[in-house]
Each structure stands twice: as structure tokens, then as C-alpha cells.
Design a protein around this nucleic acid. Sequence first.
DNA 1: AGGAGTTTGTGAACGTGGGAACAAACCGAG
DNA 2: CTCGGTTTGTTCCCACGTTCACAAACTCCT
Lengths: 218, 218
Amino acid sequence: MTARSTSETARDIPEATVARLPVYLRALNTLADDEIRTCSSEDLASAAGVNSAKLRKDLSYLGSYGTRGVGYDVDYLRYQIAREIGVTQDWPVVIVGIGNLGHALANYSGFRSRGFHVVALLDADERRHGEHVAGVLVRPFDDLEAIVAEQGVAIGVIATPAAAAQDVADRMVACGITSVLNFAPTVIAVPDGVDVRKVDLSIELQILAYHEQRKAQL
Amino acid sequence: MTARSTSETARDIPEATVARLPVYLRALNTLADDEIRTCSSEDLASAAGVNSAKLRKDLSYLGSYGTRGVGYDVDYLRYQIAREIGVTQDWPVVIVGIGNLGHALANYSGFRSRGFHVVALLDADERRHGEHVAGVLVRPFDDLEAIVAEQGVAIGVIATPAAAAQDVADRMVACGITSVLNFAPTVIAVPDGVDVRKVDLSIELQILAYHEQRKAQL
DNA sequence: AGGAGTTTGTGAACGTGGGAACAAACCGAG
DNA sequence: CTCGGTTTGTTCCCACGTTCACAAACTCCT
Ligand SMILES: NC(=O)c1ccc[n+]([C@@H]2O[C@H](COP(=O)([O-])OP(=O)(O)OC[C@H]3O[C@@H](n4cnc5c(N)ncnc54)[C@H](O)[C@@H]3O)[C@@H](O)[C@H]2O)c1
Ligand SMILES: NC(=O)c1ccc[n+]([C@@H]2O[C@H](COP(=O)([O-])OP(=O)(O)OC[C@H]3O[C@@H](n4cnc5c(N)ncnc54)[C@H](O)[C@@H]3O)[C@@H](O)[C@H]2O)c1
């Protein structure tokens, strides 16, 4: 968050920009599938659903990868964004809590195609052990430490009930995981240096409900 | 977005605050379960994982519901937030695309307990029709218009593949849905007056990957 | 009743993000 | 080579969001 060490090429990309880079990458992939080689900031911005000035400013944090009067080379820009995000490599991920949601996540093919692969599915309920989901074995939660150590896992996904989420997060952090994606509807506390992102269906619906109510009041 | 009509009590709550109100509500529910009657902004803020000054400012947009020197009455504040968000009433919701994710969503009990209930599950694949998920029948996508009209549905959830998402959204909007929650990894375009929120697992993971990569560079 | 202690509600300072607008840079035609 | 047309990269400014800090308001004890 603060002082950059000796500042090699270490650019500091705003958080809001980081959150949009994956959207640009996806839009570029779609363009590439349609065999489009070059695009203007206007083209890409409308494909990504943002303002073109914002798009250009976002890209300018990565470097100067466009050509004035021409636009951006789709493949080249695609690679640059992928490299900046860090998805030119493949990240191993563990999923904990293989219930309704955990099954859906394990079956999700979009994982692998976007730079991630599931190395383990863990659950505390022994009745679930031994099952295979999308070709991956469901194993005891207590195998966590061994798997993380062996496979060098840095990213963990929590899909357990809310009551278990903090305990699961603590165990993850203790064995070296430094990024957590939490689907349980609860706030989890982690030490500095660990990133947590949450996905909360109910919150999204409640935000929609708020605006819906406002619309109805007119 | 602009001029408030005649401004009765029409407060204008900042978007960032709206997004946090559901988190406060959840924290208050947890406190109420523990039979805590009163809490300070500090207590509630730490339960919600935010700064206490931010919490107080957020709550001040709703009105002045605390007592100086004392704090907030848990039940009273809970009701006020629920009313402001609009979850004192029950919102009917349709889910389109009953595959892996759609099944998980349909089975999700957190829906009903938070002010929403699933009135219909729709899928274009006729092999899925007739199945019951969590007690609700899976019906043809073409039933959308009839269901929305009959039940007065305002909120739709899209859990189809990306390729179908825009078409589904168009159909939803055409028959009167004005709030959409989109799980498909694609940008969907809607007319003014319709709200869209997206939930995108891959984007969340890519944001984590970015920060993970930065950590590794030190 | 008064004073000490507590906690809210908010004004003001600060930081981050968004968008218009434009100079700089490039292409292609003549 | 020059000129007109195009599109990027960036500057400047405004709006929004966050945090500090403190007066106002309340409770409780003496
Ligand atoms: N199903 C959905 O669509 C949905 C949507 C939004 C949020 N969520 C949230 O996601 C989480 C999972 O939802 P679900 O519907 O899959 O629930 P579920 O009950 O079907 O699955 C939870 C799984 O976690 C396992 N588990 C429990 N405690 C554990 C522990 N300490 N360690 C390891 N595993 C443990 C259980 O054995 C079970 O298999 C919940 O917090 C839920 O609120 C679910
Ligand atoms: N599974 C996950 O955990 C996960 C995670 C993140 C995002 N997603 C996204 O959510 C969406 C659904 O994922 P999934 O794994 O459930 O896929 P899925 O293929 O299992 O299910 C998709 C369902 O949508 C139906 N469908 C297709 N076209 C339709 C149309 N025009 N109208 C109505 N229904 C239609 C299909 O018949 C199928 O039942 C995808 O866009 C996926 O990228 C899934």
C-alpha cells in the first residue's frame, strides 16, 4: 500500500483499474475469437461497457501499448493485460465446502480457461469424502496443510456455511494461503498481507431491491 | 439520477452506502441472535468490518436513530435498515438457466430468509423441464412473460451460458423486469431505468491473482 | 443539580476516481 | 514532403468517498 521498494518497473495501478482489467481481457478475447486484429479504444470500451476515456487512462497505467491514429493490436494488448494481472501462469486453487455451491464451482469450466485450476476439493463431512467432482477427489479438510505445502497453493475458496467460514479462513492463513475468495455471508478477519474478496448473492439482491423500491416510489 | 420530484422524505443515499447497508443488517441480525439489545457504532463497525466513523456517517443518511452516550437499539436499527433497503416486503425472483449454478442458487436457503423468494425456475433445454429443485418446478423459458405478468416479478437472475445472456436479458426487460443479477461472464446492455449487477467469479480470482503476483515480486 | 464519562452526528480536510478536452503522434494520399 | 484525418496518452477539473476530530447530547454517579 505504501512505499515502493526501489521501484524497478513497479507501476502502481489504482484498485478501480485492476478490477476492470479482467473485463477488458475478456472483451479482447471475444474480439480475437471473431478474428479482429486491431481495435480502437472506442471499440474496446463499448465491448467492455465503459467510457473510452476511462479505458485509455486505465491502459496507460500499464504502459503505452497503442498506436496513435490506429488503435490497439488485439493479441499484443491481450498478452500485456494477462501478464499484468498474472494469468499467463496457472494458479492452483483449493475449494473448501463441497455442498451445493462447491459442486457448481468445481464443475465450472471457466476456471481453467482463465488461468486457474482446482487442485483440491475439501470438506469436513466424511460422507462426502471419496466422491469425484469434475474429476477431482473430495478429501478431508484436514488434508489442507499437506496439499497447500505440496502444491504451493496461494488462493483458497470458502464455500462452507457462514458459521465455519472464520475457522476455515484461519486454517488457510496459518498454512500459507494469502488470498481468499469467500462465498459465505459473513465478514472474515485476516492478518495484514492477506487479501479477502467476498461474493455475496444476498447483498447483490438487496442492492437491487433498494433501487427497485426507489423506482416504485415515483 | 437527477432532480428529485417534490422531495418528501426522499433522502439521497450514496451508492457506496447502499452497498454497505446489507452488511450492517447482517451484523445486526447476528447480534440480535446473541440477544444483544444495544450496541455502539464501534461494536457494529467491527462486526461489519468497517471504520466506525464510516458506519456513523452511513447511518446518518437514514436518519438519527442512535442515542448519544448510549448507542443504537439493535432491533430498532435493524428494522430501519430493512425498511430503507426494502426487505420488509418479500420480492419475487425468477432464475433463468438451471444448470450447475442455477441448481445451487435454487437450493440456496439464504434467499428466503433475506427478503426474496424464487417464484420460477426457467430453462430453454426441455430435458430439464418437469424437474423439481427445492420444491420449485423447472419450466420452459417461454413461460417467462406469463409468470412475470402474473406474479409481478421485478427481479431476474441470469445463470445461463454467456452466449445466451444478452437474449435472456432482452426478453426479461421486454416483459417488465427492471433489475437483473447476471452471473454469466459477459457485459449485458439494458435500457435506462434497468439496473444490472454482475457477479463474476473469474474476475474476483483475477483480482486476487494480480495482488498475489505483486506480493511475490518483493 | 452538577460534573465526569460516553457516544453520536457532522463539518472539514484529504484522497481517489471519472470524464471532457486537447496536444502529440501516427497513417495515407497527393 | 506536406497536409488532413484519426486516435492515443495525458492534463485538468469536478464529484464522490473516506477519515479525522469535535461539539452536542445523553447517562450515571455523587
Ligand atoms: N448455494 C448457493 O447458491 C449460495 C449462494 C450464495 C451464498 N452461498 C453460501 O455459500 C456457502 C455454501 O452454500 P451451500 O448451499 O453450498 O451450502 P451446503 O450446506 O450445501 O454446503 C456446505 C458444505 O460445507 C461443508 N462444511 C461445513 N463445515 C465445514 C468445515 N468446517 N470445513 C469444511 N467443510 C465444511 C459441509 O459439509 C457442506 O458440504 C454458504 O455459506 C451459503 O450461505 C450459497
Ligand atoms: N458453475 C459455476 O460455479 C459458475 C461460476 C461462475 C460463473 N458461472 C457462469 O454461470 C453461467 C451458468 O453456469 P453453469 O455452470 O450453471 O452452466 P450450465 O451449462 O451447467 O447451465 C446453463 C443452463 O442454461 C440453460 N440455457 C442455455 N441457454 C438458455 C437460454 N437461452 N434460455 C434459458 N436457459 C438457457 C442450459 O439449458 C443450462 O441448463 C455460465 O455463464 C457460467 O459461466 C458459473
